[in-house]
C-alpha cells in the first residue's frame, strides 16, 4: 500500500510523521504498515469500524502501549522530528508532552482539585498558589470551571459522566502537553455532553494538536480538519475531512461512510 498523503492548501507544520508502522500484541498483527502525517494545531480524526486498530494507533503516539506485556512496534514515529521510540528517550517525558484522554471517563477517586493537581504535583510542584492557578486555568480551558468552582474539594466521582470527561481533559491539560490524544471520548456520553466536548475541541485546537479517535462519523465530520479511515489494521485513506466525506478516493472508504458496511 502506498503511504497516504494529505492534500494541503495551507502550509502546515507536522506534529507526527508516521512511517511504515507495524505493531503486534503477542503474535497478533494489529497495525499493518500505517503511514501518515498529523499536522500541528488541527483536529485529526481516525475513524473505522470497531477492532480496526484505532486505539492501538493512538496509543502508540504517547507510548502508553509500552505497558502492555507482549506489545511490540516496528517502523517510525517522529514527533516534531524526534524519533519517539528512540531507546534513549524516557517514555514519561513523552507522555508529559503528549497527553491522553480515554474512552471511559476515569477520574481518580479523589477530589476535583486533586485530580487536576495530580500531574503538576508529580512534576514536583508544591507551591499552593501556583497549583491553585494551574487548577483554575486547566478547568477553565476544559470549560468546567463555572460548574465546579464552588466544589473543588468534593469527590470527582460525584460529577456527571460528561463533567467527569471534561475533568479528565482538564487533568491532562494541567501537565502542559502540546498534543491531546482522545480515544472515543464521547462514546460513553449523551448527545448534550457530547456536543459540549466537541465545542471544547474547536476551542482547544487553537493551542493544541488534537488526535480524535471516534467511530461516530458525524462527529469526525463535524469536529475534525483531517480524517484517516482505518480497516483491519490498515490505514485505507487519509485526507482533508471534507474530501473524505464528499469525494473519497478509495472505494472501501466510500462504502464505509455511506454506511454500506462496518
Amino acid at each position: 500500500m502506498t503511504p497516504a498523503t494529505v492534500e494541503t492548501q495551507e502550509e502546515l507544520t507536522q506534529a507526527f510523521a508516521i512511517q511504515g508502522l507495524n505493531s503486534w500484541y503477542g503474535s497478533f498483527h494489529a497495525l499493518k504498515g500505517v503511514s501518515m502525517t498529523i499536522p500541528e494545531k488541527r483536529v485529526t480524526a481516525i475513524i473505522g469500524p470497531s477492532g480496526c486498530g484505532k486505539s492501538t494507533l493512538i496509543r502508540c503516539l504517547n507510548r502508553i502501549n509500552d505497558l502492555i506485556p507482549g506489545f511490540r512496534v516496528e517502523g517510525q514515529i517522529a514527533f516534531k522530528g524526534q524519533n519517539l521510540y528512540d531507546p534513549a528517550l524516557d517514555p514519561i517525558q513523552v507522555r508529559l508532552q503528549i497527553g491522553m484522554v480515554f474512552q471511559k471517563p476515569n477520574p481518580f477517586p479523589k477530589s476535583i482539585y486533586d485530580n487536576v493537581a495530580f500531574g503538576p504535583r508529580l512534576c514536583g510542584e508544591k507551591d499552593r498558589s501556583k497549583l491553585d492557578a494551574i487548577v483554575e486555568e486547566s478547568l477553565r480551558k476544559a470549560a468546567l470551571w463555572g460548574e465546579v468552582k464552588e466544589k473543588l474539594k468534593q469527590s470527582a466521582l460525584a460529577l456527571s459522566g460528561g463533567q467527569q470527561q471534561r475533568l479528565c481533559i482538564a487533568r491532562t491539560l494541567a501537565v502542559g502537553p502540546e498534543v491531546l490524544l482522545l480515544d472515543e471520548p464521547c462514546s460513553a456520553l449523551d448527545p448534550i455532553a457530547t456536543a459540549k466536548i466537541e465545542e471544547l475541541l474547536m476551542d482547544l485546537k487553537k493551542s493544541y494538536t488534537v488526535v480524535l479517535v471516534t467511530h461516530n462519523m458525524q462527529q469526525a465530520a463535524r469536529a475534525s480538519d483531517y480524517t484517516g479511515f482505518m480497516l483491519l489494521g490498515e490505514l485505507v485513506e487519509f485526507a482533508l475531512t471534507a474530501k473524505i466525506f464528499t469525494n473519497p478516493t478509495n472505494s472501501r472508504t466510500e462504502a464505509y461512510i455511506t454506511g454500506r458496511f462496518g
Partner: peptide, 21 residues
C-alpha cells in the same frame, strides 16, 4: 480498575508513583 493506572501513567507517573499515588 486498570484504566486508573493508565490515566496516571498517561499523566507521566512512574510505576511507583502510580502504585502509591
Amino acid at each position: 480498575p486498570q484504566n486508573l493506572r493508565e490515566a496516571a501513567q498517561a499523566l507521566g507517573a512512574s510505576r511507583l508513583q502510580t502504585a502509591f499515588g
